[in-house]
Design a binder for these strands. Structure first.
Lengths: 330, 330
DNA sequence: GCGTGTCTTGCAAACCATTGCAAGTATCAA
DNA sequence: TTGATACTTGCAATGGTTTGCAAGACACGC
């Protein structure tokens, strides 16, 4: 059903080679033939089979994007950024979702590898050596993860946590909880470390680690009760999805928000601004992250010799309705 | 870098054909050889190149999913459903997003076609003939669209609109607006028609068409002002994203919700339940839609002769906080 | 010991597109 | 008219895998 170069060749009365050349190196064929081929190709709606082309040239025109959870709006926006950049340079993006299952990552990378020119691993949960193995198969860009020697795009997690905590500190909060995400997440590690290091700059700050939670709405629900039990007046959540769950759980437990508890998220997904109270959050340049990763990958593909340096993007605290002064001492 | 069948063959001391057979038709090779090949394959972490295999067998083990907007949580959940079903049957899903640009659809289908065994077109915006052309390339399942002769999965849009309108009618609303989505959308047509037909069952109902809007949050913002200008007491939105925008706009114009205006969405995306007021909406079985589409596609791929009948899934009105009695007459 | 049959394995063609090489044609100058 | 040159085009190999076919090995029966 799909037209092949052979079909075009027959219709145009030339050989397959000529069809190939007419389309990819037009200056190599006589103008008349070129037009005949172009006409036949248009008539049959012919496009070269990227897979077959890839076998020969090693270039498929596809890039792969692997991420933990498409339902998380953060990743959805990353995809948008990647797609926009890829399409701009005539690449197609293949996307797959691991469902937060680290072992799916290697599986998918192996499945994708022969069909793509390069891969973007977004927030991968696999251990470093496993990721190095993946990077040996095809050029890889890490997004939200940094491994010595591999090109990566990250955000300034530590600065985001600092901004969030000084905001809360300035409001008067002195006992603050951190509701962490998946233990295998690089961002989680970076945010947690920054949280633990915060007392140096913020005198009198009491930090409470609430533990690790699934990085979804449901994780936030669970974290909400722990925050209450821990007696904190503010919570920093690993991500916005959890922050939304936190807000919901706290409200359903009868708290006045932000009067009785302040909540700060991380990521800056669009719905944060649509809730009530609106969510104070550390805004990452989400679209830019995707664009940067795709851009970097395509650069690496064009100039394989370059060893691109890790790239870090800044974040910005968006102060909104979910943070306020802590309640008066009892 | 990627191991090929040839590498395995050399390591195992057999021919490439034997490698292929040992892995795909184990009963055809001697047990000893089979084990030698298995060992070599494991050692090299070999997986057959799906693209090369696809060239021969016509089966790549990939299915393609094309949809208008990955950032819409409705589609994100559809993806989850499709992936779950595909993975269950050892298929990988390639996903691409058209950015609500109908002309991208044909483009992407052509790019995907040679690399996948079949395609799911989710809420495609292209005209019928264009979609038939796509379906001629590869087996296609339509999701949220129905075209005579093509297998499709849809939801009962008309019933959803009926449920929403009778709910509003029962609350006492008599002048109701419809904030429509993209004119090229099949669901939009179905919902609009059902809206127009509603007066037959609901005496005294005044229907106001507020026009077409982009199916995003931003479209809802615009629709909010038109709803106010039209003097309706309730609005049915094309989808939840628009409903969220509507709520936000109405609130920012100072309205009490749902005291002064009721809003009903369509889709049942998760965040609807997290807003305040929570969103009354027509809940579609989103995951099931994705699963059903993928399941149907894989069935068609397994038994090419079957002509599967169009399939329609039920919807259910979720009454939540965004609907209430209309304000007293001025 | 020879023929028959069953297993097991390799060869080679096939899928689709690209590309080095060589053959063919046309052009032009001498 | 002949030779050299520049274009244009087709042949054939290539990539990774599958598969029909045939050849080889082996056992068995007579």
């Amino acid at each position: 059903m799909v037209a092949t170069a052979r079909d075009v060749a027959v219709l145009a009365g030339v050989s397959v080679s000529t069809v190939s050349r007419a389309l990819s190196r037009p200056d190599m064929v006589a103008p008349a033939t070129r037009q005949a081929v172009a006409k036949a190709a248009a008539q049959l709606d012919y496009r070269p089979n990227p897979a077959a082309r890839g076998l020969i040239t090693g270039r498929t025109g596809n890039i792969g994007l692997i991420l933990p959870d498409i339902e998380n709006p953060f990743f959805a926006s990353v995809i948008k950024g990647v797609q926009a950049q890829a399409r701009h340079r005539d690449y197609a993006a293949f996307i797959a979702d691991t469902d937060e299952d680290a072992s799916m990552e290697a599986e998918l990378v192996h499945h994708f590898a022969p069909q793509v020119d390069g891969l973007i691993l977004c927030s991968p949960r696999s251990p470093d050596p496993a990721i190095r193995d993946m990077a040996a198969l095809r050029p890889v860009i890490l997004l939200n993860r940094s491994i010595e020697g591999l090109p990566s795009i990250t955000i300034d997690n530590a600065d985001g946590v600092r901004q969030a905590l000084s905001h809360l500190w300035a409001l008067g909060h002195r006992r603050i909880g951190y509701a962490g995400g998946p233990a295998a997440s690089y961002s989680e590690l970076a945010r947690r470390e920054a949280f633990q290091a915060a007392h140096e700059a913020l005198p009198g700050l009491d930090r409470v680690d609430l533990g690790h939670f699934p990085p979804f709405h449901s994780g936030g629900l669970a974290a909400g009760d722990l925050a209450l039990a821990a007696g904190v007046t503010a919570v920093l959540a690993y991500n916005d999805l959890m922050a939304v769950g936190l807000l919901e759980r706290l409200r359903s437990r009868g708290l006045d928000l932000p009067g009785q508890m302040s909540v700060v998220g991380f990521d800056g997904i669009p719905i944060g601004a649509m809730l009530s109270p609106t969510l104070t959050t550390v805004q990452a340049p989400i679209l830019a992250l995707g664009r940067a990763a795709a851009g970097l990958l395509l650069t690496v593909l064009d100039q394989p010799q370059t060893a691109p340096s890790p790239h870090q993007l800044p974040v910005e605290l968006m102060v909104r309705g979910s943070t306020g002064e802590p309640p008066r001492r009892l």
